[in-house]
């Protein structure tokens, strides 16, 4: 069953002097529930634009995007925020944790916007941190954690809302080999638990972790 279905998606950017730049050209892409997919390509290929559209941070200029059976390509900012909150978990290259804030509070952050009560937030955040193996670091702030641990907190934050789709943008880009392997192990175990994962990376080695790899170049998908 498809979770993500992009049909004829184009993205055109206009700069201030009116020049147009087509970042994505007629993208057709279907991702099924439970798939672990890597999107790869050189920088400037359009993979970041693709990720922003998949993550509902940006809207396509034309074409349609069906997420979990409903068309999301024409929704307004408020609806997009709500769907991001419920259905998508983000993992970023630079972790993007709130400074001077405990791991537990960082992980429970998306639940605040979901309207979950504080008690439930904390217990769900704790569970989430247990999944990534940080049950002993609940009170640590980002500055007290290593890069690998910080990224695991970020993964716990992406998992806490129990989203349909996990979008990881260069999740190992700031990590050494050992920590990268740790992170990939977590993704593999999430995949085993039927999570849908999209991994965006320019490193082929990292992409190879995923059973399905899509190459993007000059705004088109190469098959």
């Amino acid at each position: 069953m498809p979770l993500v279905k992009l049909t004829q998606v184009n993205k055109i950017y206009k700069n201030s002097s009116g020049l147009e730049f087509q970042a994505l050209k007629n993208i057709n892409l279907t991702i099924n529930k439970g798939e672990f997919l890597a999107i790869t390509g050189p920088s400037g290929s359009g993979k970041s634009t693709l990720m922003n559209i998949l993550g509902l941070l940006d809207s396509p200029s034309s074409g349609s995007y069906e997420l979990d059976g409903s068309d999301v390509s024409k929704l307004g900012e408020n609806d997009l925020a709500t769907i991001r909150n419920r259905k998508i978990g983000f993992v970023f290259q630079s972790f993007n944790l709130l400074p001077r804030t405990s791991a537990l509070d960082n992980v429970s952050l998306p639940l605040i916007y979901a309207g979950v009560t504080e008690k439930d937030r904390l217990s769900r955040a704790k569970q989430s941190l247990e999944i990534v193996g940080l049950a002993d670091k609940l009170g640590s702030t980002p500055s007290q954690l290593s890069g690998g641990q910080q990224q695991r907190v970020a993964i716990a934050r992406a998992l806490v809302t129990n989203p349909e789709l996990i979008l990881a943008d260069e999740p190992t880009g700031n990590l050494d080999t050992k920590n990268s392997e740790e992170i990939m192990k977590i993704f593999h175990s999430l995949h085993k638990n039927k999570k849908t994962i999209i991994l965006i990376t320019h490193e082929l080695d990292v992409a190879k972790n995923a059973p399905r790899i899509i190459h993007v170049k000059d705004g088109t998908v190469l098959n």
Partner: peptide, 10 residues
């Protein structure tokens, strides 16, 4: 930006 990505509405 992070809060918005995680679901904060404007």
């Amino acid at each position: 930006g992070l809060r918005k990505a995680l679901g904060a509405r404007p």
